[in-house]
Every structure is written in C-alpha cells, then in structure tokens.
Simulated assay, not measured.
Amino acid sequence: MPHPRFLVVFDADSTLLRNEVIELIADEAGRGAEVAAATEAAMRGEVDFATSLRSRVHALSGVPLTAFPRVIARVEPTPGARELIEAIHSRDGVAAVVSGGFHEVLDTIAPDLGVDVWRANRLSVADDRLDGTVSGDVVDAEAKAASLREWADDRRVPLRSTIAVGDGANDLRMLAAAGLGVAFNAKPAVRRQADLVVDPVDLRELIPLLP
C-alpha cells in the first residue's frame, strides 16, 4: 500500500467540534458555567493545561456513565468538518485528531466523521460514575506535538507535509511542529504565533490548503 501524501492533525474541541465537550459533561453535574470559565482561561494560556484539566475533571465527579449518550447527542461538528475530511481522503491524506478532551466521547464522534486516528484523555470510573480523575498521562501541549510527529513517522510522511489545526494555547507546540500551523477559531496567543489564521468558522476554508 502506498504511503499517504500528507497528514492533517486537528484539535477537537472548538476546532473540529463546535463544543467544549468537558463543559457538556459538566452540565450533567450542574457545574457547566464553572468549568466553562476555567476552560477559557486554559485555552488563553493563563494557566497550566494539565493542572487545569485535572481541576476541571474533579468537577465531573459523580456524573453517571448513563449521561454520555446525552452528551454525545449534543456534540456538533464544526461546519465543513465532513467535507474537509472527505477532501483529505480524496487527495490521499490522513485525517487525525489529538485532543485534551476524552476518548469516551471521541471514540463515537471521530469515526463517524471519518477520522483515521485519534488520541485523547480517558476518564476514571468507579461504580459506573466518573470518579473525578484522569486515567494515565494528560494529553497536553507536548503530547499533542509528539502525536503529530509519531503519526507522521509511522506513515512515512515528512513533517513538511503535515498540517496542524487548533484554537488554544495547548495547540501551539503542535502547530510549531507541523509543516503548516493553522489557527482556526483561535485565541489571540494562537493567532499571533500560527503560520496562518483562518477566521470563518467553516472548515471548508482549509480545503485550498491541502497539497
């Protein structure tokens, strides 16, 4: 099988997806507004992402696993997501997602959108409820950059043929590692440092960037 021509790695929340999924889960605990404020600070780069994530996940303690179908039903792909992923595949590319969000949601959403490979955090569970902790290492800024490099290496795609797309401060290392780093729907710090800024919140705007 020939190697893919290029690799596109997306952030999930507020990039490939319109939502911040952790806020949807927090709504199930009645703590959506509190978690939303903390998420916004993390995305602006005002606090350490891993520390912030653990604090926000603690606020999810007690949410039952039965809530996840309701959460998944509320997740909205960003306009143009399916069309962009179809365009990636039609040009012999790979579509990937690396997220500070959660496998519990992404494992349903990603394959439905046609994503080829994805990585995210996992939530710990006790007695069929979230216990307020993350299982294993947090997917932070360095883990995102490492995922891009790993997936490119596995598929023999040179880094110059990679594109990274993200919105928050925890995407900056991934954007820097890629051949082209795109700020999409992005916070000011990301807009300043990315190679390219895309303003319309429609992923079809990225199709002309594909090799």
Rank of each mutant, 00 (worst) to 15 (best):
E46G: 02
K144R: 13
N185E: 07
A38P: 01
G168I: 13
V57E: 06
A110G: 08
G32M: 09
W151Y: 10
L196D: 03
V98L: 02
A164R: 03
M43N: 05
L210E: 08
G100T: 11
A73L: 11
G93Y: 06
V201T: 11
A183M: 08
A41I: 04
D128T: 09
L180R: 12
E28H: 06
E83W: 01
V117M: 04
A178C: 10
L16W: 06
D154N: 07
R160M: 00
L60S: 07
P208C: 09
R18N: 08
A50C: 05
T51G: 03
L148R: 12
M1R: 10
F6N: 06
D27C: 01
A178Y: 07
P200R: 15
V94M: 14
H58G: 13
T78G: 00
L24W: 06
G114E: 08
D11F: 01
R129K: 13
G114N: 09
D127V: 08
V157G: 02
V8P: 01
A145T: 11
A110W: 04
I25G: 02
D127R: 11
S52Q: 06
N121P: 03
Q193L: 12
V71D: 03
G101H: 06
R5L: 12
D167P: 05
R156S: 14
G179W: 07
N185S: 10
R31L: 11
E23G: 05
E76F: 00
N170F: 11
F6W: 08
E20H: 05
V138W: 00
D167L: 08
K144L: 10
D107Q: 14
L16H: 02
I72D: 02
G136L: 13
R192N: 10
A59D: 14
R44E: 13
N170A: 12
R74N: 06
G179L: 12
A59Q: 13
R82A: 14
L17P: 04
T78V: 10
E142A: 15
D11V: 03
V134D: 04
L84A: 05
P211K: 09
R192E: 15
A37R: 14
T66Q: 06
N121G: 04
A33H: 09
A141R: 14
I88G: 02
N19D: 15
L130R: 06
A36S: 15
A87R: 03
K187D: 07
T108V: 15
A36E: 11
T15S: 10
M1K: 03
W118M: 10
D112T: 15
D11N: 02
A143G: 14
A87V: 11
L7P: 03
A50E: 13
A189Y: 00
D199H: 13
P111A: 12
A164W: 02
V197T: 13
P69C: 13
D140Y: 02
A146F: 07
L209I: 13
E83K: 05
D128P: 00
S124A: 15
H3M: 12
R204Q: 08
D27E: 15
I109N: 01
